[in-house]
């Protein structure tokens, strides 16, 4: 389902990263721990098809994603990979519902039912026509999860999803991510340095010390 092989990445003027090889099956969970600057986010961007590594392969659902060109990669990302960021990044000009519909539109699908169901399960179906500035942090983060799930992805990547949330919301968010990943039989990778998340995901990987 998700395989990464001998990934080597280097930013200009910084020492290179060599990122661990991964092999995850549908429904697997992985918690990636590490201090800031350890390359966690870089790893996530590489796995999410946002940042092309100097060498190595990322294979999702049988496709080597960096062999895809331009629009094909964007569409593949939209369809197969759901990404949740530390900050919610809701498109400010759109309502909650439109934020989710636009994700459908970008990959040429219409999954209104899925959207409605996700909103229900995430407990924000009453916020459908709200805009970003009327949502609380926790609600906004749940919207961003709903958006990541809008196209029923095969891989869910979460970058510090709980960092700006209080204990209760953090707990909720991680629980929802797990439930949804299970339901979709998707690979869930959470990158964090948040100790509160540790107890929820058993499969853990610490980067930064060895690979830096």
């Amino acid at each position: 389902m998700l395989i990464s092989k001998s990934i080597h990445f280097k930013y200009e003027n910084l020492p290179p990263f060599d990122l661990p090889d991964l092999h995850l099956n549908p429904g697997d969970e992985l918690l990636v721990l590490g201090k800031s600057g350890s390359g966690k986010t870089t790893l996530l961007h590489i796995l999410g098809g946002l940042l092309k590594p100097q060498s190595g392969d990322v294979i999702i659902d049988g496709t080597s994603i960096y062999s895809l060109k331009g629009n094909a990669l964007d569409k593949f990302r939209g369809e197969k990979i759901g990404i949740v960021f530390q900050k919610p990044h809701i498109l400010s000009a759109l309502t909650v519902m439109e934020n989710l519909q636009i994700a459908n539109y970008f990959v040429g699908k219409n999954k209104q039912n899925t959207i409605e169901k996700n909103l229900m399960e995430l407990g924000i179906s009453d916020k459908k026509s709200a805009k970003l500035d009327t949502l609380s942090e926790g609600e906004a983060q749940r919207v961003s999860i709903a958006r990541a799930l809008a196209n029923e992805p095969k891989v869910i990547l979460a970058d510090e999803p709980t960092a700006s949330l209080d204990d209760e919301n953090a707990e909720n968010v991680i629980r929802l991510l797990k439930i949804q990943a299970k339901r979709l039989q998707a690979v869930l990778i959470v990158v964090t340095h948040d100790q509160r998340v540790k107890n929820h995901i058993a499969n853990q990987l610490t980067i930064g010390e060895v690979y830096r």
């Binding site: 990302r77 369809e79 990404i83 990044h89 498109l91 000009a93 970008f106």
Partner: peptide, 16 residues
């Protein structure tokens, strides 16, 4: 730019 980057992560192409 942030919004645009987010759109890219959820499947929008450069051309779009």
């Amino acid at each position: 730019k942030y919004d645009l980057a987010v759109m890219r992560t959820i499947g929008a192409s450069k051309g779009l």
